[in-house]
Amino acid sequence: MAAYAETAAKTVLATAGRDRDRSVKSLVFLGLLWFSLFFGVLVLVALIVSTALEGAPRFDSDLITRYSSTLSPERTGFRAGILGSLMVILATAAMAVPIGIAAALHLEEFANKERWYNKFIEVNLQNLAAVPSVVYGLLAVAFVTLMGIHQRGLVISGAVALSLLILPVIIITTREAVRAVPREIRDGSMALGATRWQTTWKQTLPSAVPGIATGTILGLSRAIGEAAPLLIIGTATAIRFDPNGLMSQFTALPLEIYSTTSQSREDFRVAAAAAIIVLLVMILALNGLAIFIRNKFQRSW
């Protein structure tokens, strides 16, 4: 027994020694790893810092409370873009989240995985997640036209485009969250006489909510930064009123930033830099929320 413990201790020490490997090869390799990490982070930090410095003079309330103005560029604001982005994201969430969760639950809990059409859907979900976002813009145009909406650049069209864009992401992450709920929980519920529907609704779904929320929010934070599909549906780049519903015209922050940077006057460039920081803060806030939810509620089985 004692002898065994001794060998075990030696093994532990020997393994630990490998961490302090000091051969040239491993040092070079470690150096490369550090460099790659450093390079990635450095570029990001440089970008953010230079943008923040450039936009610093415009971190004022006008930036978010005023509409864009060509007459007084030093006081131009992004109110329409910020409100537009928020509204279109809310509408996107309202559309994509229920549909995405329902689709994922069907595929994971109810669909017969042996059937070829379910396998087909499964493969194509992965493909859909990799489709360029402009394509979803085109799809959205077709979709709303079919619904009989011919006006361009409406909130609903934007929401349809962004929903199509993030649906695959939501479905895939929801399926993963649902799959992580142990089989035993479902069996336990079914063995007590619950129906499959009750089991899904009362056991599987609640247990999967943290994972679903995390995936959904990450999807939404991707959508909020998108410009291409919104351009395709004809979103205006500068308007001077608040969006007031699904059928209202709007502009989105990324688009407004884009159109502002293309102005030649210095004041506009400064304002655009400040607005980029606002957009980053919005995205970081969403990601932060996702991380918070994951750490707070994620269950380890």
């Binding site: 035993e184 069996d187 063995a191 007590l192 009750q198």
Partner: peptide, 29 residues
């Protein structure tokens, strides 16, 4: 299954309170 219940190899309580675990069966059925 309401007539013939089952207990599994690995204890598999639901991630709920003790009370809700016991009340679950009567509620769903």
């Amino acid at each position: 299954r309401t007539h013939v219940g089952m207990v599994f190899q690995k204890p598999n309580p639901f991630p709920k309170s003790i009370y809700d675990n016991v009340a679950y069966g009567p509620r769903v059925t």
